[in-house]
Design a binder for these strands. Sequence first.
RNA 1: GAUUGCGUAGCUCAGCAGGAUAGAGCGACCGCCUCCUAAGCGGUAGGUCGGAGGUUCGAAUCCUCUCGCGAUCGCCA
Length: 574
Amino acid sequence: MDYKQQIADILSEKTGLDRENILKLVEIPPKQDMGDYAFPCFVLAKTLHKAPPVIASEIAPAIDVTGTPFKVKNVGPYINFFIDRSALASDVVGRIVAEGDDYGSSETGAGKNVIVEYSSPNIAKPFHVGHAFTTILGNSLSRIYRKLGYNVIRMNHLGDYGTQFGKLITAYRLWGDEEALNKDPIGELLRIYVKFHQEEKKDPSLTTSARENFRKLEEGCPEEVELWQKFRDMSLVVFNQLYRRLGVEFDNYNGESFYSDKIPEIVDILNEKGLLVESEGAKVVMLDDEGLPPCIILKSDNTTIYASRDLASALYRYRTYNFDKNIYVVGGTQALHFKQVFAVLKKAGFDFADNCEHVAFGLVKFKGMTFSTREGNIVLLEDLLDEAVSKTREIIVRNAEERGQDMSEEEINDISEKLGIGAVIYTYVKSGRERDIVFTWEDMLDFNGDTAPYLIYTYARTRSILRKASDSGITGIENADLTVLTGDDEYALIRALSELPESIVKAASSNEPFMIARQISEIARAHNRFYNNSNILNCDDEKLKTARLALCDAVCTAIREGLDLLGINVVERM
RNA sequence: GAUUGCGUAGCUCAGCAGGAUAGAGCGACCGCCUCCUAAGCGGUAGGUCGGAGGUUCGAAUCCUCUCGCGAUCGCCA
C-alpha cells in the first residue's frame, strides 16, 4: 500500500481533516535526514488557535505507529514521517526485482487510444537538428503512454503537400538534374529549392508558376502528380534510414496529401453551420469571440491551406480512432495555429476538440541564429549523429586499451552507435520541452555529467558486477533478504528508485519526458555514490552482498527502463 | 502595437495548484585509482531567484506594474 495513503489515514484520524486534503498537503522534505514525508501544520493553526510548532509537538507524540512502518517526529511546524529503512528496502527493491521491466507500468490507459503526431518532416527538405526535437519528443511520449497502458497510434503527418511542391516542380523543370536527384535526392531538391528562392526575388513570374503548378497538382494533373510522387518516395527512403537509426517508428505515414480529399467535407460542414465567411477574397472562420484572429480555410485562389488540412485530419482521426487524446508534437511557433484549429472544431460542434492538445517545444538555435532551410544554414541531424558516434568511438577505443578490454570491431561500432545517438537524444529530453536549445558542438559532444553516456556507463558498470557475480556462482539474488539495505547511501538510492513510477505518471500528464530523465539521473548519481563508498562483490557479509547485488539489479532495471522510455538504448559493457 | 512565452550560481537547467537553510550538471579550485569499469566519487568557491509594489503567518512560486529577450499576429507550414 502507498505510504502516503497510510499517512493520510493516520492524520485524518488525528486532525479531522479529510484524506484528500491531507494527501495534497503531505510533502517530501528537502533533506533526507528530515524523513520521507512531512505534514505542515500551518493549516491547523486557525482552527486550533495555536502556533503550528505547538500543534506539531502535540500531534506527533500522540500518533500510534504500531503496525505501521513509520517513525514520527515533529520538527518545528512539521510532523515528519520516517519510513523504516528495512521495510522500504524490501518493498521497493523486492518489487523491482520481481516486476523487472514492468516496474512503473500500469493499466490506467487500458482501452484508450492516444494519437501522437510527431516528426512530420517536409518532403524534399533536409532533416536538420530542429526536426529532431519533435521526432525525439514524440517517440518518447509514445513510449511513455504505452507504458501506462494506452493504445498509442504514432502518426507521421508528412509535409507532402502545399505550395512548396509547386515551387519544387517549377524549380525542377528549370534546373533539375536527374542524375544528382538519384544520387542524393534531398541534396538535389534542396539545391533547386534554395535556387528558387534566390531567383524568385528577381523574377516574380516564378511565384506565379509555382502557384499554378500546385493548383494542377491538387487537381490531379498526371505530370505534376508523377513528379510529386517521385519526390515523396525518394525522400521517404532517406527519412526511414534516419528513423531506423534513431529507433523511431510510426504506425501511419498519412501526410497532408492524404487529407486533401477530405477537406471539402469540412468546408461543407463549416458552411452549413454558417461559420464560413468571405473576407478579403478568402474563406475564413471568424474567432473574435475567442479573442483569436480569423482562421483561413480556403485561400483566395480557392486552394487549401494548412488549417483546413489540420481540421480534416482531426475529424478523420476522431472517426477512425475515437481518440481519448490527440497530441500534436509541433514547435511552439505554431501555438496560434493550433488554438485556431481547435477553436474552429469547437465552434463546429466537435467536442473532441477538448481532447486535442498541442505539445509545443522550443526552437533549436545555432550561435543565436535560427536555422533556415531557405538560406541553407542548417546542421543536418545525420551529421550531428555521425560526429557524436565518432567522438564516442575514440573514447571507447582509448578506454578499451587502458582497461585491457578485448572488443571486436563490431562491438566497438555497436557501442559507439548506441552511446553517440543516446547522447544526442538525451540532450533533447533532459530539459523542459519549451526551452530553446542553443546548439553548440562543444555542449553536444560533452559526455560528462548529466548525459546519456553517464547513465549508460552507470548501467554497464553495474551489469559488469552482476555478470561477475553470476560467473562466480552467486545465486539467490532474487530471494535476497533486502532488510539489510539500511545504509545511508543505500537508503538514498532506494528512495530515488521508489519515485520512478510517479515520475513516469507525471511525465505523461505534463507531456514532459524530462521528468523521467531527471529521475533516472538521480538514481544513477545515488547509485554511483553507493558504488564508490561500498563494496559490493567484495563485501565480507554474504547476506549483505546478495542484497546489494539485488539492489544493483534493481538499479539496472530502472535505468534501462527509464532510458527506454526516452528512446535510448543501453549497452552491456563499454 | 496586440497576444504569448521566458528571465534562478560564470554557463546549461530543475524547483513555481505558496511552506523548512533555493538544488543539479558543466566550468573553476582542492582531493580520491595495490580494491567491483575514474565517461566515476568527495570537498570548496559561486545566487538580494530581472526590478518595484501587493496578497499572506510565510512568495523564486500568486496578483499588478515595469525592464530585457524570443515567438506569433490572414492567404508558407
